[in-house]
């Protein structure tokens, strides 16, 4: 089946089985291994992608569903926003990255949250990231990172060099 969609800002036409999971299409065919898989059942958020700006689980979406959609993966985060996204660097600065396997999904959930709520409280950040499991950090530095990126996004904090 031929599927047309916009991937990280670029129109794409791919040929694939309609029942191929989106996570497999992205990782195996399109080389976007920043999309992780850690449960395959919608319980961990590692495979989070943005579909028309909304955080969704690519392990529970089939390729056919991509038709006509705009998909953003971690690799395309900067491209989609035209400018450099402050989230990845903020994650690094606050120490929010440890093993890094949850990080891409976490960053994308944070991006979706900041689109809806540019100045979230820590509680709102926790809610916004509650579908993304992290086993390394205890979450605190991730919350710090999103707070920092939100302030930078609003222009309240300087960006790093």
């Amino acid at each position: 089946m031929r599927i047309n969609f916009v991937l990280n800002g670029e129109p794409r036409r791919v040929e694939c089985d309609p029942d191929r999971r989106v996570v497999d299409l992205l990782r195996e065919e399109l080389g976007l291994t920043g999309v992780k898989e850690a449960c395959g059942a919608g319980e961990c958020g590692a495979c989070t992608v943005l579909v028309d700006g909304q955080a969704r689980l690519s392990c529970l979406m089939l390729a056919a569903q991509l038709e006509g959609r705009e998909l953003t993966t971690i690799e395309g985060l900067a491209a989609a926003g035209q400018t450099l996204d402050p989230l990845p660097a903020s994650f690094v600065e606050t120490g929010a990255v440890q093993c890094g396997f949850c990080t891409p999904g976490m960053v994308l959930s944070a991006r979706a949250l900041l689109e809806r709520a540019p100045a979230p409280s820590r509680r709102e950040i926790r809610q916004g990231l509650s579908g993304n499991l992290c086993r390394c950090t205890g979450y605190q530095k991730i919350i710090d990172a999103v707070e920092l990126a939100a302030a930078r996004g609003r222009g309240d904090e300087p960006w790093p060099r």
Binding site: T73, E75, L87, V92, P104
Partner: peptide, 17 residues
């Protein structure tokens, strides 16, 4: 290292195809 992970560029053992 951390930035590569935050940008989805780190290659973990599972990431080779």
């Amino acid at each position: 290292g951390d930035l590569a992970k935050a940008r989805g560029l780190e290659m973990f053992a599972a990431d080779r195809y």
